[in-house]
């Protein structure tokens, strides 16, 4: 166990935000879910007692008859804003006094940094380069992430949970956003920071970064791994297309199963237009292709699934 190596990674000034994230993301996930569960208990209570549902103010926050529903922004909101601004300033000051921004040697195109890492917030994309060619990882995926995020409000046909924390009423939405944001995006950043060393090789935390390490791993394409006697380009293209098509069918089936898993989700599905359904399918399947390719690559050492003269997937 090379504690020094680990300490070096953690104490690199530009990595400090990631250490902060390791704490902040779990904290706010807990903080949000705690309120969601409190609301869910209230919802269950009101659903069991329709009479109460008519009279209750339907919030977990305290309420007494006669209280105003609204309060003045001045001072009730502004004092909070002032306080928060003050606290943020203090945190930023203390952070800036205790920790210096990094400055390396002057830029030198002849002296390659190894590993050359993108800034931490883009490490997810850089890590994706291991699994996909640059045109997918660096261009197509980021574009799809942006478009996919923007599509969320237009494809979420569930009217419940608008303006309050809840888990019960939005299980699929919350689980899939959590999967994309926390499991894929954040954890890929953490892999990129803590695991990837020189040559973008996999070093377990505490393993020494060996700049001379060689890895004799043979990455094969899928048809080679399966030992299929395919040689011509056409056959390869068709075979790969078939496999990808099968993946889309299989993943699409799984997503459909998820969307019809219980009576509530089936009700939501009935509210959806065809365009909404197809869009959801497309983005879910594309999102799933990342972990699928990760497993193929990390476990089965498969480089490409689909080899064509124009592009490889």
């Amino acid at each position: 166990m090379d504690w020094h190596q680990l300490w070096q990674i953690i104490s690199t000034p530009d990595n400090v935000p990631i250490v902060a994230i390791l704490f902040l993301i779990p904290f706010y996930t807990w903080y949000g879910l705690r309120q969601a569960l409190a609301n869910d208990r209230l919802i269950a209570e009101l659903e069991a007692d329709p009479q109460k549902a008519k009279t209750h103010h339907r919030k977990t926050q305290p309420w007494k008859p006669g209280w105003e529903k609204e309060v003045h922004v001045w001072p009730y909101l502004m004092r909070m804003e002032f306080l928060v601004a003050l606290i943020v300033t203090v945190i930023l000051m203390v952070w800036s006094i205790t920790l210096n921004a990094p400055l390396e040697e002057p830029a030198n195109p002849n002296l390659t940094m190894n590993p050359a890492k993108a800034p931490w917030y883009f490490l997810g994309l850089q890590e994706m380069l291991v699994y996909f060619d640059p045109w997918i990882a660096g261009v197509v995926m980021p574009t799809l992430i942006i478009i996919g995020l923007m599509a969320i409000p237009y494809v979420d046909a569930n009217p419940l949970g608008n303006g309050y924390y809840t888990f019960k009423q939005r299980r699929i939405a919350i689980l899939s956003f959590g999967f994309g944001f926390i499991v894929l995006w954040i954890s890929m950043i953490i892999i990129g920071t803590f695991i990837r060393g020189p040559g973008w090789m996999w070093f377990w935390p505490g393993q020494t970064w060996d700049h001379n390490r060689l890895v004799f791993e043979v990455n094969r394409d899928l048809h080679e791994a399966l030992g299929l006697p395919i040689t011509s380009m056409w056959a390869k293209s068709i075979f790969g297309g078939l496999v990808v098509g099968l993946f889309y069918l299989g993943a699409g089936y799984a997503v459909h199963k998820l969307m019809t898993i219980n009576e509530f989700t089936r009700r939501i599905l009935r509210r959806m237009s065809l365009v909404q359904y197809v869009t959801i399918q497309f983005f879910f399947i594309t999102m799933l292709s990342l972990p699928a390719k990760m497993v193929l690559r990390l476990v089965f050492r498969i480089k490409y699934v689909w080899v064509t003269p124009w592009f490889n997937v």
Binding site: D14, L103, N108, M113, F122, L125, P134, G138, V139
Partner: peptide, 25 residues
């Protein structure tokens, strides 16, 4: 500095691979 130079090199190298618009895409 080296940090920024290589980060931006890595970042913009991806643009090479842009479909249609990059010379390696």
């Amino acid at each position: 500095d080296q940090l920024g130079f290589w980060a931006v090199t890595v970042g913009t190298n991806m643009a090479r691979a842009t479909p249609l618009l990059g010379h390696e895409g």
